[in-house]
Simulated assay, not measured.
Amino acid sequence: MCYACDAFTRIEPNYQELEDKDIPKVECNGVRVSVIAGESLGIKSPVYTRTPTMYLDIVLQPGAVLHQPIPEGWNAFAYILEGEATFGTVDSPTISAHHTVQLSPGDGVSIWNKPGSASRVVLIGGQPLNEPVVQYGPFVMNTWDEIKQAVHDFQHARNGFEKAGSWHSDPVALE
């Protein structure tokens, strides 16, 4: 049984693996963008997404700005990994590292790095699916009936859970 809603096309799962050397990167006017998914500064990622998606890893040198288009109607957010960044106009408040900025709908965003040190930001966005979401533990589906079926399949090692009994995670020691 596939868990996709009957209104949607049922598809097999897919996996793509890219090494860092396969991710296109572009530099322009003090901005370096790794285009993991989507497009930026005229460079398009080879990653295939079923729903239009953008995932950009951006480094801005002091004084640099990136004007990044975001298609109308998409949801998008930015997370500041290092340094500080300003979103919108150069006079907007500066946001420090380890904060998330939820972007409002529009046709794009300007990200500024006022003079100081380099900033690193990830910009993630995509076309909304507009589907119902039901979550129970690690299971996320569209309806409670699909949740019950997923739990049943997990308990009986079926439909993608055939090897679940031998799955394990090794904790990573943080230094």
Rank of each mutant, 00 (worst) to 15 (best):
T100N: 02
H99N: 09
V35C: 01
T53W: 08
Q102E: 09
K114T: 15
E131L: 07
L41G: 13
L81S: 02
V59E: 08
A85R: 00
Y136G: 04
V151C: 02
E27F: 14
S119F: 05
A85Q: 04
N142D: 03
P62L: 12
E82W: 00
Q61L: 11
H98R: 15
E84T: 06
S45C: 08
F77I: 03
V26M: 12
E82Q: 12
V90Q: 14
F154L: 14
F77E: 10
W74I: 06
T86W: 09
P52R: 11
G116Q: 09
N113L: 09
N142L: 06
Q135H: 06
T89R: 04
A37K: 07
D107G: 13
S34P: 03
T89N: 03
L60N: 12
A37Q: 13
S45L: 06
F154T: 04
G42V: 13
E82P: 01
M54V: 10
K114E: 13
T143N: 05
L129K: 08
T94R: 15
N130G: 06
G73V: 05
G108A: 15
H67E: 13
I80T: 05
G137K: 10
S40Q: 08
V31E: 04
N142P: 03
T143W: 10
V26D: 12
E72Y: 11
P46I: 13
V90E: 15
Q127R: 11
F87V: 01
H156R: 12
P105R: 09
V33H: 01
V133N: 10
W74S: 02
G88V: 04
T89H: 08
R158P: 03
G83L: 00
A157V: 07
I95L: 13
N159M: 05
V35A: 01
M54F: 10
D57T: 01
G63Q: 03
P62R: 11
H67T: 03
G38S: 02
G83H: 01
V134L: 08
G63N: 07
A37G: 09
D57C: 04
I58W: 02
S117H: 14
A64W: 00
K44C: 06
T94F: 10
G88T: 05
V90I: 14
